[in-house]
Amino acid sequence: MIKRSLILIAAMCVGISAQASERISAVGSTTVLPVMSQAAEAYHQTHPDLMITVSGGGSGVGIASIIQGTAQLGMASRNTSSQEQSKLDGKVDNIVIASDAVAVVVSKAVYESGIHQLSLKQIADIYHGKIKNWKELGGLDKRILVIDKEASRGTRHVFAKAVLGSSHARAEGASIISGSNNEEQMIVSRSENAIGMLSNAWLNDKVRGVDVVVDGKAIAPTIEHVRDGSYPIARGLHVLLPHRATAATKDFVQFLLSQEGQAIVKHVGYLPVR
């Protein structure tokens, strides 16, 4: 009896693994993640035999897991560093599926107190700890909660490069370090004095993007300004596809670039590449 049920269980396991014939795991940037997970859902309806699991961790984690071969697809919201690239050369295709703006976000209360635009210099001064109070920028007399991101995060690289000069620049003024976009969004929306960096698709009523002043002109972090190239903190959203990937994985990446996939990109709030 026991023997028979054991055999049955074993058979079931084999059956289950045979049924879901292929699994893809996509790991990395939480900025690319919403596109990937919605695309995976849509793709699963026409390809029920393919299981795609999507998880975050940040661009650095995505690139590291492709280098170490622990994931089939990597997601990154920044360019690879030269050190990373040397390990990927000739083995991995780096495909841009969308672009977006890294918005400089502030809490709703800050925005409503009159801070609608900041220059790159002012933002840099805040992150270097030279400006510590919103009063100095014409806002209320409140200390600034400066949110920095984990050093490996793509958004951090792009922001630091555009604002602080290099992608690993120190931010001495930082008061707290956040990880994923969700975490940062939560900290900003909970605070009344926060400034942070978030992809433009993550803005909402409590998390407002300010205009960035370039050459005397205030430019809002919108898709239009990414398209015409005027917004200074823009970037491509990448998918890393190893050459040794299976046909099904490659097909899925093609789906991301197809009309349907690009419609998802637009729906999430990024700029399609096609």
Partner: peptide, 20 residues
Amino acid sequence: LEPAQTLTSRIGREMGEAAF
């Protein structure tokens, strides 16, 4: 009363990105 770091939280935060 200020944000800080502990040994465990550092390992948890940074392990994923550190190349083996």
